[in-house]
Design a binder for these strands. Structure first.
Length: 665
RNA sequence: GCCGAGGUAGCCUAGCUGGUUGGGGCGCCUGACUCAUAAUCAGGAGGUCGGGGGUUCGAAUCCCCCCCUCGGCACCA
């Protein structure tokens, strides 16, 4: 039994197209495997723990459970409505999951992979509590950007260990936090370095994920703090702490498997404990994780190490989907570049199959997918409808009109070229699926549809019907064979539409080995076109909606300041006396700037637009009371103002020469 | 700067263990046809295969240098 999983959606927001980028190809994969006769278990569920959920629930004045309930049901519903059929969709806040996680952690403790250590943690004296993860905001110790407790999300993107953050502040009340000592537990991730290198070398899946992971393992592996001060989560054995959400979330794959097996009569231990083969130090399972590029670290490093720690079977493949762009821009909920599955897509009445086709067929699974409504319309109308839909409809309708759906009273036989074309499509699909190449698979059935149109056109059955009805029947019989093949081959990508077609031609089994059986296919009822066109007006409406949303998001980010705020800044005109590039840096220039009463050393990130020599003598605006900082080891005491033109700096300079040190107001 | 992934016609791409005129899809132009949701079919225009060197009888494919895009890190004060 093969196990396929999708990264667990975090029960803290609605489903968007980024989720589907991973889940739909996974579902397509599973559907194809099943058509090939493989036994597959397809598992997913909500990730319900962690501080963002607690923080958001507090904000809304509800319990974490209530918040989770809402989004859990939402995901379940949305996935079903786009045809993603999980065998089990669990949640990590359930009893069985807590039990599984506790046992897992206990085993890690028994194997001595967990140790405790006193660490200094941010503590809010006003709220009287420790501040885990997103309860705390401060300065990233690596890059100096504003960061949250667990991740430097606006700066260098690093994952931060508890206690690492500088200048912590309570996110809830804004109070300056103090550091207090507390005992926490660590997972000996460093003990798995060699194992991970070997594992990452051999595991299957897509290269995009594995390359990153290999680098991380080589560079900066640290032991991993796995406990948090929180009520909401899985209790750490014997302590008033919960385990970190990224410990319990992947264990969800196991606990959901066990629950699924209860209903389906399989054995979860065979899948997760026994595995399918041993290869030196590695016990392989037949387990495939579909994930997004953003959770590679957890699935390629933490997770295999945890599994190895308890001597469980390891995933055989990690398949990471590329990023999503919306209308050519990086996907971003806060900036409005987002497509909500329910509110935008489903409520507008679009067939879910269209989106499935778009996501699968736009580009290779590993590459970035750009979602654009215009492209969406083109792909649906010009490819799905004009080619595939049209072929299915013209054949079935022709058979219905001229033969009442039954051509088999004539003596007809299979055309060799038709059988070959179907065989080719099937072989290509089987091969593509094994390589995670879903676009190639969907291209293959589209090519078969194209072949069908060509065949129909060149045989001219509309002429034959007048002159040679038997010959005509043979052409249509062959075309119906192609229709049947298409119905089956396209089913995993277009399940809703192909099920309808299947009813019309009396196909009740979607199996790969039935695809090229030349059966007596009849048209059982009056055919309907399998797809409806996407209207241009509707697309314009969607585009307008998106533009509005982007504009609103822009407005939201405006924060007004008072004149007092402004007066906090000591802005002055300075003159650049000397400039030289900071060694080994790309953007930085070291400047000496005369600001009237003193000469300051300032480092500015402007080397991409200016050469040092052209800066000397220029008057610039300086923030004189900027907190000193070190950049690439060079001290900087001030900041030069510049316009940001698509990431490149353009200096602000007085309109005419002014006395050095002039105040800027 | 370092590490990844890339740069192939307006767009998405195949080819990349070197070898006949670099394939395909969408869009575009012309023609044909009418069974079909103006769908389909035929034909066509459109490429210095990022740039420059080199190896070779022969390179999109191999080697070197450079440029650009994206992601990650080191520095966005």
């Amino acid at each position: 039994m093969k196990l396929v999983t999708c990264g667990l959606p975090y029960a803290n927001g609605k489903a968007h197209i980024g989720h589907l980028r991973t889940y739909i190809p996974a579902d397509v994969y599973v559907k194809y495997l099943r058509m090939m006769g493989e036994k597959v278990l397809f598992i997913c569920g909500s990730d319900c723990h962690g501080t963002p959920i607690v923080v958001n629930a507090e904000k809304e004045g509800i319990s974490p459970r209530e918040l989770v309930d809402r989004y859990h049901e939402h995901f379940k519903k949305v996935f079903a409505s786009v045809g993603i059929e999980f065998d089990y969709f669990g949640r990590t806040d359930s009893e069985y999951h807590h039990e599984m996680t506790k046992n897992f952690v206990k085993k890690l403790i028994e194997k001595s992979y967990v140790y405790s250590k006193e660490i200094e943690l941010a503590y809010c004296p006003k709220c009287k509590r420790f501040l885990p993860d997103r309860y705390v905001e401060g300065i990233c110790p690596y890059c100096g950007a504003v960061a949250r407790g667990d991740e430097c999300d606006q700066g260098c993107g690093r994952y931060l260990e508890p206690g690492e953050i500088k200048e912590p502040r309570c996110k809830i009340c804004g109070t300056k936090a103090e550091f207090r000592k507390q005992k926490h537990y660590f997972f000996k991730l460093t003990a798995f370095r060699d194992f991970l290198l070997e594992y990452l070398d051999k595991v299957g899946g897509t290269e995009n994920a594995l390359n990153y992971a290999r680098k991380w393992v080589k560079q900066e592996l640290k032991d991993w703090c796995i406990t948090r001060n929180l009520e909401w989560g899985v209790k750490f054995p014997g302590e008033d702490l919960v385990v970190y959400v990224w410990v319990d979330a992947p264990i969800g794959y196991i606990s959901y498997t066990r629950e699924a097996c209860k209903n389906l009569g399989c054995d979860w231990e065979k899948i997760w404990v026994e595995g399918v083969k041993k290869e030196g130090d590695i016990k392989w399972g037949d387990i495939i994780h579909f994930i997004g590029l953003d959770i590679v670290y957890h699935h390629c490093i933490f997770w295999p190490a945890m599994l190895k720690g308890v001597e469980f079977a390891l995933p055989s493949a990690i398949v990471a989907s590329g990023m999503v762009k919306v209308e050519g821009k990086t996907f971003s909920k806060t900036r409005g570049y987002v497509v909500w599955v329910e509110d935008d897509y489903l409520k507008s009445g679009f067939n879910p199959d269209y989106l499935r086709y778009y996501i699968v067929n736009y580009t290779s699974h590993q590459k970035d997918l750009n979602f654009s409504w215009k492209v969406f319309m083109d792909k649906v109308n010009n490819e799905l409808i004009a080619n595939l839909g049209n072929f299915i409809y013209r054949v079935t309708y022709f058979a219905w009109k001229n033969f009442e759906g039954d051509v088999w009273s004539f003596n007809v036989k299979a055309d060799d070229s038709v059988i070959k074309a179907v065989e080719k499509a099937r072989n290509e699909i089987v091969k593509a699926i094994k390589n995670w190449e879903f676009k190639i698979a969907s291209d293959a059935f589209m090519e078969l549809a194209s072949f069908g149109n060509n065949y129909f056109q060149s045989k001219e059955p509309w002429e034959l019907i007048k002159s040679d009805k038997e010959k005509c029947a043979e052409v249509i019989a062959n075309c119906l064979h192609i229709v049947k093949a298409l119905t089956i081959l396209a089913y995993p990508v277009l399940p809703f539409s192909m099920k309808e077609v299947a009813k019309i031609i009396g196909v009740d089994e979607f199996r790969m080995n039935k695809v090229n059986e030349f059966e007596k296919i009849k048209v059982l009822k009056k055919p309907k076109p399998p797809f409806k066109k996407v209207e241009e007006e509707k697309i314009e409406e969607m585009e307008k909606l998106m533009i509005d949303r982007i504009r609103k998001a822009d407005e939201k980010t405006v924060k007004y300041v008072t004149i007092d705020d402004l007066s906090k800044l000591d802005l002055r005109v300075g003159k650049i006396l000397r400039a030289e590039k900071v060694k080994k840096s790309r953007k930085l220039i070291k400047l000496e700037v005369d600001i009237g009463n003193e000469v300051r050393q300032i480092v500015a990130g402007i080397a991409e637009t200016y050469k040092p020599e052209e800066l000397v003598g220029k008057q610039v605006v300086v923030v004189a009371n900027m907190k000193p900082a070190k950049l690439m080891g060079v001290e900087s005491r001030g900041m030069i103002l510049a316009a940001d033109v698509e990431g490149k700096a353009v200096l602000l300079t007085p309109e005419k020469e002014v006395p050095i040190g002039s105040k800027v107001r």
